[in-house]
């Protein structure tokens, strides 16, 4: 028994470190500049995803909207929440662009076309982004200290508690296989 104890101790400690400690150590967390509520904008303002996350006329995806899009409505606070007041005071009034952190940023060597997936593939936003569009708060941006990419590429957020495919290469390939699409390396790594 005594002979097994050191081995078991090492095993247990490393299991704890790997499963509990490592996720905390590997990621550094920072809050988003504004505690934005998708739920309020979807429910009360009646907005859909594409109202803010639109395609430009040339087909490129605009991504996270810029300040002028928000300032169109929020030139002055429209509600009573501290988050909105903070947004107007810190960003709208001084015309300062919020430095949003994109949860779904892909590595630089990846070419991803939103329009091909949305318009041609008829894929809903929720398919890849989960119910992010109905959240009341923005989760902190957790960045991998080594690779620099978001934790959200890898797995479902624990807060959201929903399922969506990961946005790693394996996740993309799995979805393409399910839909019977085969591609070459150059289609995504131009």
């Amino acid at each position: 028994m005594r002979g097994v104890f050191p081995f078991a101790a090492g095993l247990a400690i490393m299991l704890a470190a790997g499963w509990v400690g490592f996720p905390h150590a590997i990621y550094k967390s920072r809050p988003q500049p504004v505690d934005f509520s998708h739920k309020v904008h979807a429910d009360k303002a009646g907005q859909k995803c594409e109202d803010c996350h639109a395609f430009r006329p040339d087909g490129t995806f605009a991504g996270i909207p810029t300040l002028d899009k928000c300032a169109g409505c929020h030139a002055a606070p429209m509600g009573t929440t501290p988050a909105e007041k903070n947004f107007v005071d810190q960003y709208v009034t001084p015309v300062r662009e919020p430095q949003w952190a994109a949860y779904a940023s892909q590595p630089d060597n990846v070419f991803f076309s939103h329009i091909a997936h949305v318009k041609r593939g008829q894929i809903q936003c929720e398919t890849c982004h989960g119910n992010h569009g109905s959240t009341d708060h923005l989760q902190p941006f957790q960045q991998d200290r080594i690779s620099g990419y978001s934790r959200n590429i890898w797995q479902v957020s624990e807060r959201v508690k929903t399922t969506r495919p990961s946005m790693t290469m394996a996740g993309c390939i799995d979805c393409h296989h399910e839909k019977g699409l085969e591609h070459s390396c150059l289609d995504c790594h131009k």
Binding site: G3, P6, F7, A8, A9, G10, L11, A12, I13, M14, L15, A17, G18, W19, F22, I26, P107, D108, N109, D144, I146, S147, G148, Y149
Partner: peptide, 28 residues
């Protein structure tokens, strides 16, 4: 023995695999 247990334990966690992947991404 402790080291051996730690090594086996490490392999049973996501840490080494994530480190390999992250290092590859970092090298880009």
């Amino acid at each position: 023995k402790f080291g051996g247990g730690a090594a086996v334990g490490a392999l049973l966690t996501p840490a080494p695999w994530r480190l390999v992947t992250d290092t590859a991404l970092w090298s880009e």
